[in-house]
Write a protein that binds this DNA or RNA. Structure first.
Lengths: 367, 367
DNA sequence: TTGAAAGCGGTACCAA
DNA sequence: TTGGTACCGCTTTCAA
């Protein structure tokens, strides 16, 4: 399978090695290596002679050889757990795009590079890669991906809390606090019948959110109004919102869309349902999409802070890598509610109380 | 700097090596290696003994050592050229998200993994990485990134046509054909005063588009109406669109937004300008954003085919890598116009001619 | 059928 | 100050 590496490979110009430079400069490997790396003590003349020879020959050190010597590759595998079947890409969602980007940046700052692995890949895919650690973005419950890395003894970081297996590290958002913050905010703005739109997938996060929502409703004597999307993607979320608002009877007076969807699209759906935002319906979307700030009205978003998660996660991973400890660690980070007009009660001449929440009743006859 | 690699690193459990397995099994390194790799000829009993010992000890081969032996790492560096200053991430745009994802997938299919490099990084960042090739996404003109890789003798692929330096490979979209297709389509649908919104950045692609647009306008006796955005991001594009439509005099009757922006946001901006789509203004957006299909009306998009570019590019790169040839190669791929209602003339009772293009005149008094 | 030994390309120790 | 040499961990050739 792997043919013998006849120096330089097929038809490739023979690559210059350290010995070649040494021979050219009339020095030894050792001296040239030290000269090029700036280590060791030697006369400037010799150092310059070595450098000159290297430059003349176009020498570039073999990274693999250095890595073998160094004992680590400073490479971190990066896999996405969810969205295995999505054709487009696992990066099409702003959350993943930012998580990926921020993770890469944070890792690089510590001297580690990220290797992109295919979604939901097995050990065969990365067995040949010199990975010092791995990151599983958005793992499913009991994800085999996690098992594989744990079994291989590769330190692991995920953006979802996992049980404390040796060598695992996690950072998660405080889902409970987030849900309460959003619902409290909506209530404070006058909403009494908040509804929630959740994705159909089963992840720890979504379960936590559901529990938290029900608990909050129980505590406030509000009947929970929960909708799950039929699948991933903007279309499914918009359809769920349309269904929710088209239903007969008293509609919700606030909407908390936790399934990631394009905020302008959600807003449009609400508008098409004949509701004004925020007058008839307060709107909050969990989204990292910057377009939320540019709609009319701008949409309040709950940020899950992918950049913060990445930052903190790499920190934990680096600490483990440097100490060599396999002690599991974890951390919870706060979400951030970016308040915009879509969830702020319109304050008309008559004060806050004047906002037309009766609209919900009118809508019954619409369908 | 790099401390001596005391076997296993600080406090880490000593990693099992091939010799350890050999000793445990009472065999030689050679035999165990062959047994584990399924190569060589030996009795089943011996093979099983070796495997059993490896399993018992939890042996995992050192990837770096194999790589050194094999002479290649099957690693490809991936850098983004444009958007150096964007804080969020270079993947926030659907084009990049898809290009990145598709590139990773295509490379993986050929046994190569992508290493994410920081945007606009220099050779220091990747000198220690055993890269077999590199990919520069959306390079600027005469991008130093490209120079660095060429100078280092690393085969390179970019999604923009570059001059034929040795070891460089490119795939680009047929910008001229794309512009003509869009403008011809708009004209066919009745538009006579199409305007174009372009990003402010200077790339070969945007220059090609500009030239093509002017040429088309010349050929059709239409005065070019070209606007550049003030910067990247949805906000700048929306502002440019607003400016364009708010201008005095006869407004455009069709808009071709080539700067990547959220289609729902662009559509909203048009609506806010008091124009109906497609009755008053035909709209086409160059975008990979799936949300375009879910607006009302759905927005016609021009896809730059990031997935196709990635596919074709990896193909060229693989051919070069396998043949060892440093002969530059390149290819042009077509764009795809996804026709939706936003650019299809509304056919009222009076037929195509009845569409209200007089609206342009009304708007003058609006500001 | 099995194993000793020679590399792959650098780096680091220690002796000269 | 400089250079010989062992070694990182694995694969492969070749001899026993």
């Amino acid at each position: 399978m792997t043919d013998t590496p006849r120096r330089g490979g097929p038809a490739a110009a023979l690559r210059i090695r350290l010995v070649d430079v040494a021979r050219e400069a009339g020095l030894s490997k050792t001296t040239v290596s030290a000269a090029l790396n700036g280590t060791g003590r030697m006369s400037d003349a010799v150092r310059e002679r070595a450098r000159e020879a290297a430059r003349r020959l176009g020498y570039r050190p073999n990274a693999t050889a250095r890595l073998l010597r160094a004992g680590h590759a400073r490479l971190i595998g990066y896999v996405v757990g969810e969205f295995a079947n999505e054709p487009g890409s696992y990066m099409s969602s702003p959350y993943f795009a930012q998580l990926t980007s921020a993770t890469a940046t944070a890792a690089l700052r510590h001297g580690y590079a990220l290797v992109l692995l295919p979604a939901r890949c097995g050990p065969e895919e990365w067995a040949d890669l010199p990975l010092d650690a791995a990151i599983v973005a958005d793992p499913l419950d009991d994800d085999p991906l996690v098992e594989d890395f744990v079994a291989a003894g590769i330190p692991l970081f995920t953006d979802r809390s996992v049980e404390g297996r040796p060598g695992t590290h996690w950072v998660d958002v405080d889902a409970d606090a987030a849900v309460r913050e959003v619902l409290d905010h909506l209530r404070e703005q006058g909403a009494r019948r908040p509804a929630v739109v959740l994705p159909g997938t089963v992840t720890r996060f979504h379960r936590a959110v559901t529990d938290s929502y029900r608990r909050w409703c129980g505590g406030h004597g509000t009947p929970p109004r929960l909708v799950h999307t039929g699948g991933p993607g903007d279309g499914a979320v918009v359809a769920a919102v349309e269904d929710l608002l088209a239903g007969p009877g008293t509609g919700p007076d606030a909407l908390f869309v936790l399934a990631e969807a394009s905020p302008p699209l959600v807003l449009d759906a609400v508008h098409r349902a004949g509701l004004r935002v925020p007058e008839d319906l307060l709107l909050v979307c969990a989204s990292e999409d910057a377009s939320a700030a540019h709609t009319h009205p701008p949409v309040t978003t709950l940020s899950l802070r992918p950049a913060l998660i990445a930052e903190k996660g790499i920190e934990l991973l680096m600490a483990a890598l440097e100490s060599g400890s396999r002690e599991p660690t974890g951390a919870v980070v706060p979400t951030r509610l970016e308040l915009r007009a879509s969830s702020l009660a319109a304050r008309g001449p008559g004060g806050p109380a004047a906002r037309g929440r009766a609209a919900g009743g009118d809508r019954a006859g619409r369908a």
